[in-house]
Amino acid sequence: MGVIGELLKGLRVTGSQMFKPRVTVKYPAVFRDKPERFHGRHVLNRYPDGMEKCIGCELCAGACPARCIYVRGADNPEDAPVSPGERYGFVYEINMLRCIFCALCVEACPTEAITMTHLFEMSTANREDAIYTKDTLLMNEDGSVPHMFPDDRLADHDELMVADGWVRATAPSGNAAYEGVKMWQGTPGPADWAPEPSQEERDA
């Protein structure tokens, strides 16, 4: 083989790769699809009537392995209650730089007040911006979720409207045989999904 032959041999891989489809996802323009159960930024939900779901019980803060959640509960004002319960969370802060997105807070929450979205792109230039307060975490009354930097060209508002589906380790009814049964969240958005059936209902 001459020089030309060797050259062609060497460029064979290059040539064959050249016509294959490109795999690159051009990120700022195109967002890559995330898995269904992706754990992203948190959101504090509301009931369909606009009331807050959080009752300020601090179970999420207790369950957090990174200790990144700070909650303070307060008694509901009688004339204008914020949540249907006795109390509501009047301070709710999450330090996103501590958070490890394990969703143990989601699992601990008795009222499904805190759930997760698919937004995972939330870099900040300083530490203060990474502390999400109730202003950012709590969904609006119309069911939309506020973004920390809504005017940023990289802000993706659609990802905030995608709920993560998650699996409870055991069924809330206590039957371990139901381990792994999908409990899909209907949130974000003031959705009214059917309540979880009791064990009797399940067994029937």
Binding site: C99, C102, F120, S123, T124, A125, R127
Partner: peptide
């Protein structure tokens, strides 16, 4: 540090 990237 200039940019903090949250996530784990």
């Amino acid at each position: 540090v200039d940019i903090y990237v949250p996530g784990c």
